[in-house]
């Protein structure tokens, strides 16, 4: 029998409606508000998204009972998913247009890939397992989760840090505004992380098991989420609760954070289970009306220490 795959920690940075800070909340322009995360402290080795990812990985490891050094080596993988990727990629085009060839320097260009956050954090933590970046549909966070699940099932590594983020500056922000319907709810910049591990190794370490990943199921474009519940649970689930991010119609308590939405739904399900103090089955994920989506079946366990305020970054 193959080993189970479990979730042992999560981390979340989510821009808030009432956030203070240097950028904080408020409309950028046009029909939709874009709520921004605060800028990270400057560090020449990092960009904003990579700096945030590095910090959240540290938090994730600590919550899972791991020292940062435990992530070093080929047993740990790292994957990211995003709708728009890193804004620095598009900024290279602006710099060349405005400043000419001298506007493109070697260090800046080396940081201008969508996989830069993954690569920079791999270097910081010595992560040598599989590592890739997706810039994909509104379900990109769930696509990244799928990669992590694949790598564990295929025996490529023992744990995978799964990240989803949105970095909405420059043309990405303008594109969000282009697509926004009149009076659309605000779009939140966000970064969410989930740590997937082999169940046997996590339990042997005494790590807090927040949920067992029962399965993943693909939903075709315009498909019905309930229709895949059996596949997501590897059999008939006992009426799982449903929490799905749909960017065009976010369902409370979710907010629209584009491709981060699937992992946000997962974290909200874990929080709800912790609050209920009872084990619960959840079907969570994200749907993109054009590309379909991915749903995860979760057997969530009530871990008392997993409480929402402690897991969500203070925005000040």
């Amino acid at each position: 029998m193959s080993d189970s795959i479990v979730i042992t920690a999560t981390a979340l940075a989510l821009a808030q409606q009432d956030a203070p800070g240097p950028i904080g909340a408020g409309p950028v322009s046009g029909a939709v508000s874009i709520l921004r995360l605060p800028e990270e402290a400057p560090d020449r080795r990092h960009t904003g998204p990579s700096s945030r990812l590095a910090r959240l990985i540290g938090q994730l490891a600590a919550d899972a009972g791991l020292a940062p050094g435990d992530l070093a080596g080929p047993a740990t993988g790292l994957v990211s998913g995003s709708r728009y990727g890193c804004s620095l990629v598009a900024d290279m085009h602006r710099r060349l247009r405005d400043l000419g060839p001298r506007g493109i320097d070697a260090v800046g260009f080396a940081q201008a890939t969508h996989n830069f956050p993954v690569s920079a954090c791999a270097i910081d933590y010595g992560i040598q397992g599989p590592g890739i970046a997706l810039v994909s549909s509104l379900a990109a966070g769930m696509e990244a989760l799928t990669c992590g699940r694949d790598w564990l099932r295929e025996g490529r590594c023992d744990r995978v840090i799964v990240a989803a983020f949105e970095d909405l500056h420059g043309p990405a922000a303008a594109h969000v505004e282009l697509l926004a319907a009149p009076h659309a709810p605000p779009v939140h910049e966000a970064m969410a992380l989930v740590l997937l591990e082999r169940g046997s190794l996590a339990r042997a370490r005494g790590a807090p098991v927040l949920a067992e990943l029962a399965g993943l199921a693909m939903v075709p474009p315009q498909g019905q989420p309930r229709a895949v519940a059996a596949r997501a649970f590897g059999g008939d689930p006992a009426a799982p609760r449903l929490l799905i991010a749909e960017a065009e119609a976010p369902v409370p308590p979710l907010v629209d954070c584009l491709a981060v939405g699937g992992l946000l739904a997962l974290i909200r399900a874990l929080e709800a289970t912790a609050a209920s103090e009872q084990a619960q089955d959840w079907l969570v994920g994200a749907l993109d009306p054009r590309c379909g989506g991915i749903l995860a079946g979760l057997h969530c366990l009530p871990v008392a220490s997993f409480a929402a305020p402690a897991r969500q970054e203070a925005m000040a």
Binding site: G85, T113, A133, S136
Partner: peptide, 16 residues
């Protein structure tokens, strides 16, 4: 996906 009427699993990668 749209042009060829494909409806299976979807993902797009940007890893340099």
């Amino acid at each position: 996906l749209r042009s060829f009427g494909l409806a299976g699993p979807f993902a797009s990668f940007s890893s340099a």
